[in-house]
Design a protein around this nucleic acid. Structure first.
Lengths: 216, 216
DNA sequence: CCAAAATAGATTGTTGACAATCTACAAATG
DNA sequence: CATTTGTAGATTGTCAACAATCTATTTTGG
């Protein structure tokens, strides 16, 4: 039944890099978020162009997205550099706003998430536990992001998802550089486990409470 | 002393349209916000290109900004259309988030705004009163936007200002289409007058109260 | 007649060449 | 010597041609 030469039993990996612009955008974004490009670093179009073997058109479009996203700032005819965010804005604007979006999404999630979504989220929790056991901060941080990303993307319009994504991207960049000052990794895992349980149970009141109490 | 041929007594108007991309972006954005392009309307690159007499490069870059801003959505190789936002997201995400940003900005404003800023804001209030007296909704709406824009832009980083701007743009588009359901125009003017007075007085507590009570 | 395959037209994606602007430094001017 | 003016090189902005992809229509094969 499962013939290796039979396409019914085999699937090629989907190429989700639909365009060069998308590819360039993701590459630069990841470099910034993972800290390979630090705040103040300059982005030269021709330099990137040569490194990626792509013309400047798609690169310029990617830069426009990154600029509107707020990861980069362009000075006309001069240069574009990676931004630096103030501690105050991160704490008083970005963090509460992200919370607000995730609360809204979690409450919608009660009636929106499918069995597939829950399976995906359960799997993330499993991986988080592993990462926590191995003290793997980087992996845990990535799983954290993926967890909320799935929920928000399913429960909110593309325009709203873009806002959440731009905010969480900037926060993620921050945390990776600062090195996660959480009380304990195990706590992070537990919190996500509880949240998922609350969504399953459908108790919107307690979802709000849960997110309110964890605004440290 | 004031010789008309002497540059010391004369200043040329500053050209702030730095690039075609910027021009195209502003034009399309205004068309969407003012309702000349309704939700679902399609944007064709060549069509815009001919109308504006600009090549497709700058137009594509402008579209990338509008897309990340959430005013437009692109389907690869297919089309890009003006977005339509859900009532629920506008009320539960956009409005409170904008309030949050404006509260943060207003509190910073106490120690940031200059005499120039206050003069500018005073003048806006004067114009608002005029607009209110003449029942000019459109003008009042524009002044409202400019009022908060000035405060937020002065008190927040460029990256944060972009987020606020994308949110207020979407809300502005909404209100222009729906036609402002405020209790009365005069109330709007009064609220802004009070807010400016509170910033001048430097009472951050009451600024928070003021914005909290006006979250209708 | 229906379904799969081929085709044509429209639209978006990509490219390389050329233009405009900036910075830094050199030359001229007083 | 200080200030202005004029280069040269680097970098970003713009353009027009070409390539890839999508949609709708037509053709083909059964």
């Amino acid at each position: 039944m499962t013939n290796p030469n039979d396409l019914e039993s085999f699937q090629f990996k989907k190429n989700d890099t639909v365009s060069l612009r998308q590819f360039v955008y993701q590459e630069i974004r990841e470099a910034i978020i993972k800290g390979h490009l630090e705040p103040g670093a300059r982005l030269r179009e021709v330099e990137i162009s040569k490194q990626m073997n792509v013309s400047r058109g798609p690169i310029r479009e990617a830069i426009r997205i990154l600029e509107q996203e707020g990861l980069v700032i362009s000075h006309p005819y001069r240069e574009t550099v990676v931004v630096d965010l103030s501690e105050e804005e991160v704490i008083h604007l970005l963090v509460p706003t992200r919370r607000h979006f995730e609360l809204f999404a979690a409450q919608k999630a009660v009636s929106v998430l499918t069995a597939d979504d829950f399976a995906f989220l359960d799997n993330i929790i499993l991986n988080m536990q592993e990462a926590s056991d191995q003290d793997d901060l980087d992996r845990l941080s990535n799983l954290d992001l993926k967890f909320h990303e799935r929920i928000v993307e399913q429960c909110v319009s593309p325009a709203m998802f873009r806002i959440w994504n731009s905010i969480s991207g900037k926060l993620h960049a921050r945390f990776l550089i600062q090195g996660y000052s959480h009380s304990s990794l195990q706590t992070v895992v537990e919190e996500h486990r509880e949240m998922l349980q609350l969504i399953r149970s459908g108790d919107k009141e307690r979802i709000e409470q849960h997110l309110q109490t964890h605004i440290k």
